[in-house]
Each structure stands twice: as structure tokens, then as C-alpha cells.
Design a protein around this nucleic acid. Structure first.
Lengths: 220, 220
DNA sequence: CGGACAGGCGAACGATCGTTCGGTCGGGCG
DNA sequence: CGCCCGACCGAACGATCGTTCGCCTGTCCG
């Protein structure tokens, strides 16, 4: 990284737990994973140095290694959290009961909720390039999840529950792409999660268009 | 990059123009930008070394510098190509004539076509993190483009051409996200571009659902 | 009171990064 | 023919990377 760093938002270092002499900060591993995931997303994994991470945690680089195995271990922990959240959806009863469309719609809505709840970790998962063994492992698991959704789209299409499409496989990709694109702009607090779920569901299954293109909604 | 490199697809180096002593390879700048964009997308910009790039071009690292100013200059050239393609859409006559919905729909369809035509360059644009001045410049231009689309969605919504939605701004984000997600999976040759355009348009504006939720499409 | 120990630090390690430099080679032109 | 110049290369530069090491300090427990 020869490039100039971004403005380095104010108080980034102070974001760590209050460094009071009295109370041991006692960095628990999961909170460091959270910090790491946030910085990874800001700069990108490869462009993030251990110096960046330790500074965000409020300690020096060498101190940071007392709590953490290494850079890749942090990445793996964050990715596991994201994948556990996503695969947890498939284990819910509503994911395997009812018509394919009912199940698909439930999974999509829950996927949005998990994305919002685990935003930094899922964001990390969706930006992997597969440069290390850890990344390739996570990408493989993610492909499994996408395949489950693609299977459901195919079944719903075969059951006539979806609009006649050119290719259910393409529809599945578009559906996953639509949901996953949330991580590029959604930030917690701006929009309630349930409103976001409703909006995504509506766009995916009903589209943006007003119902009656020629005549008005309530004719006469 | 401590991580092990991905399998390094066969014949990556041989992808360069035939290194015949007789005919000077005469690397023109634009073809090197193309090669660089491809490798940047495979490994990620920060994880890509100049060694990677020069090897993909079929020459050594030091030779590579005879044709190229540096790593960031390659990035900028690729991003300019992507941005020129996208902003070119807004200059087309059909982008500013007709109802907001008509214009929006034309732009979306053209955006898919540009994405397909300039896939590596647009992919690069959509993955920027803003670590260097060049990246921040490109991100700012990209935000301009997205804002133009958001404006059109708002106008179409105000004109009653879109389904009553909760928030046109959210719809605009979802629409852009749906279109941009193409770069994550689409590869040329698998699906004709016009079929892809039709599928994206249909999903965005009409949704996945079969027209009549309760009764069948052709009753009786 | 003292020893153990976890938390934190500065300095340094080998590796790799982007970039530069000096030099070789060979075909085209005067 | 002889010169020139663009293409190309090996070697090395300083910087930064992830990681390790030795040491200091304060706290808690016996």
C-alpha cells in the first residue's frame, strides 16, 4: 500500500473500551473479531495491516498478538460467524415446510434479517477473493448456501409458482444478488429491519411496476 | 500476503501475445489495462503484485514498467473506461425523453449491456474501498451515476408509475444493487446479453411471482 | 510481603511490496 | 556497415508487511 490512507475517521482508536488503569480492559476474543471485521470492511482485508487493527483496538501491534493468533485467524472467526448465521436459516422449520415458494420467501426474508444482524461479518464473506485457504473454504460454504436457494427457485418455478422465466438459474442468481447487495449500502438505524425486509420481498417477488400499466389501480 | 496463492490457472503467462522474436509484441497500453483489470479482479487490487501483472502479460516486472507508469495508473485507466461507459448512457437521447419510467427502464437495460461489454472494468469499479486518491475519485463519480438513477426512481414514483413503495430511495438502492450484482457471477458466452437484459428488466419491474397468486394463469 | 502472571510495549526478524537503475540485445535506418 | 533506440532483463532500493522476542509494569493470591 503506497497510497495515501483515507481520512482516518476521528476517534477511531478511542473506540476501544475505556483504558482505565483500574479495570482491566480484558479484551475478549469476540469483541476483537468485531473490531477486525469492521476495519477489514473499511479498507479491504489485504489492505488492512495488523497495525490498523491494533490501533482500532486501542493497543499496539505487539500487544494485539497477546489476544489474537494472527490476521487470518481473525478473518476465519468472522467468516464462521457469518456462515453460522446463514446456515442457521436453513435449519429453521419454516425452511422445509410448505410450498417451494413459501419456503423460498421465508428464507429470503430471514436472509435479510441475518444480513442486518451480522452486517460486518456477512459483508466480509461477500467480498472474498479466495487468496488463502481460509477464504477458499468460506467461499465453498457460501456456494453451498446459494445452491440451496437456487434449488428452491427451481422447484418453485417447476411448480408454476413463479412467473414464466427464461432461466430459473439466472433468477436465483439475481435474487441472491439483490439480497446480498444490501451490504453495500445498508447501515443500521437508518431504516428499521422489518421495513427493509418488506421492501426487498416486494421488489423481488412483485417488482417495482405499478400493478395496472394501462388502466389506473381502481378503475371507476 | 502471507497466504498461499490460488492454483494459478494454467497458461496464465501464455495468455500474452505470442512472444516471437520476429514480430515485436508491441504491447499497446490498452491491452495491458485489460490484462491488469482481469488479474485485479481475480486476486483483488491490493493483493495483486506487479509481479503478478507482468507475469500475466508474459514479461518480467522491470520490463513491464517500460509500458506502464505504475500500479495506480493501471487502475485509473481501467476505472476511466468503466465510468466512461456508464456516463455515456446518460448522454443518450433516450435517457432524457419520455416519462420517468420509460427513461429509467432504458437506462437500466443499457446499464446491463455496458456491464457485460466492460465486465472487468466495471467489476473493478464496484469493488473499490477508497484507499487511494484515485479510488476515492472513482467512487465519487460512481456516486454521481447512482444519484442520477435515484433521481429517476423518485420522479417515476412521484408520477405514480411505480408501485406504492415505502421509500423510493431504498428502491433505487435495490435496483442498482440488483443490476450491479451481475458482475459477481455473469461470464460472457454463457447467456446472450439480450436475454440477460430481459431477465433483469423483468425481475426488477415485474418481480418473480406468477401474475395470479390465487387463481391459475389461464383460469379454465 | 513476594512471587506469578497477564497485559502491554519497543525493537527487530525475514519476506515481499512498488519502483528504479544500469546494462544487454537485435532489428531498422542513414 | 555502424549506429540508435525501443524492448527487455537482473539486481537492488527503501518501505511496509505479518510475526516474534525480551522486557517492563501493575494486580491479585497465598
Amino acid at each position: 500500500m503506497t497510497g495515501t490512507r483515507p481520512p482516518a475517521r476521528e476517534g477511531e482508536r478511542a473506540a476501544a473500551p475505556a483504558r482505565d488503569r483500574r479495570t482491566r480492559p480484558t479484551y475478549d476474543p469476540s469483541s476483537l473479531v468485531e473490531v477486525a471485521a469492521r476495519v477489514f470492511n473499511e479498507r479491504g482485508y489485504d489492505a488492512t495491516s495488523m497495525e490498523d487493527l491494533s490501533a482500532a483496538a486501542g493497543i499496539t501491534k505487539s500487544s494485539f498478538y497477546h489476544h489474537v493468533r494472527g490476521k487470518e485467524a481473525l478473518l476465519r472467526a468472522a467468516l464462521e460467524r457469518a456462515l453460522d448465521g446463514l446456515f442457521g436459516i436453513l435449519d429453521e422449520p419454516a425452511a422445509s415446510t410448505g410450498s417451494p415458494l413459501t419456503r423460498l420467501r421465508h428464507i429470503v426474508r430471514r436472509q435479510v434479517e441475518v444480513l442486518v444482524a451480522e452486517l460486518p461479518h456477512v459483508t466480509l464473506l461477500l467480498r472474498l477473493r479466495g487468496n488463502t485457504e481460509t477464504e477458499r473454504w468460506a467461499l465453498a460454504r457460501r456456494r453451498e448456501f446459494d445452491a440451496a436457494i437456487a434449488r428452491l427457485v427451481r422447484d418453485a418455478s417447476a411448480a408454476g409458482e413463479l412467473r414464466d422465466g427464461l432461466d430459473p438459474a439466472v433468477d436465483a442468481r439475481l435474487l441472491s444478488g439483490l439480497v446480498n447487495s444490501l451490504v453495500e449500502w445498508y447501515r443500521p438505524g437508518r431504516i428499521p429491519a422489518d421495513a427493509l425486509v418488506a421492501e426487498v420481498d416486494r421488489m423481488a417477488f412483485e417488482g417495482l411496476l405499478a400493478p395496472a400499466p394501462a388502466s389506473r389501480r381502481r378503475p371507476f
